[in-house]
């Protein structure tokens, strides 16, 4: 609208009416954007959803060579009590050959004394391709996990080895509260 007015008055100075048009337009646009924000933000997680963001798990009952799946933020988290062979297999890989290079130790979180516990592997059970839950217990060509949706194969450390997924299975934030209990989130 200011353009149209400017066109009519040619080289003249901007008028008070131009100023009012611009100020009113700016107020409407600015106010509109501010008013829009609550209607967008309401779709973000609500306070009660955020309050569910940690899960505590007793890991002492997981037999060697098997895994449990717990729910954290509505997603599955795999906790696997690995065998010696699985740990050795994970450490035998040439890291530089991996799509998402990470050593097995980098995928572990130390306990309060600073010691790693390589027999306990914790990671989100969500394929980094399109979010399916991979099959476990040594599934797939690399003895770790295998996603049935589009054929991504993960090794015994949960690292991507084959298929369309771009990244390793993510490790959630977690900590050892005691020898037997971890808190995820």
């Amino acid at each position: 609208m200011s353009d149209a007015t400017a066109g009519q008055i040619g080289d003249q100075e901007p008028t008070r009416r131009d100023f009012i048009h611009i100020a009113a337009g700016a107020a409407v646009v600015g106010g509109g954007v501010l008013a829009l924000w609550p209607f967008i933000d309401q779709m973000n997680p609500a306070a009660d959803t955020l309050a569910l963001s940690t899960t505590e798990v007793d890991i002492s009952q997981i037999p060697v060579g098997s895994q449990i799946t717990v729910s954290w933020r509505g997603k599955p988290v795999f906790i696997r009590h690995r065998t010696e062979e699985e740990i050795a297999e994970a450490n035998a890989v040439d890291v530089s050959s991996l799509r998402d290079p990470q050593t097995d130790d980098e995928r572990l979180v130390p306990d309060p004394e600073g010691a790693l516990r390589p027999e306990i592997l914790v990671m989100e059970g969500v394929c980094t391709h399109f979010g399916c839950v991979p099959l476990g217990d040594g599934a797939g060509p690399f003895d770790g996990w295998f996603c049935p949706c589009h054929g991504s194969a993960y090794d015994t450390s949960g690292r991507i080895r084959q298929g369309p997924a771009p990244l390793n299975l993510p490790v959630p934030p977690y900590a050892y509260l005691s020898d037997n209990v971890i808190r995820i989130g």
Binding site: P38, F39, D41, Q42, M43, N44, A46, A47, D48, T49
Partner: peptide
């Protein structure tokens, strides 16, 4: 309608949740 639950056991609580927990739910 994105947050409300139309069930006799949950309707009242879901409205209170909108007011207390949903972002800007009190305002809307």
């Amino acid at each position: 309608g994105m947050h409300y639950v139309a069930h006799v056991d949950m309707a009242f609580d879901s409205v209170q949740r909108i007011r207390r927990d949903v972002n800007y739910g009190w305002l809307i």
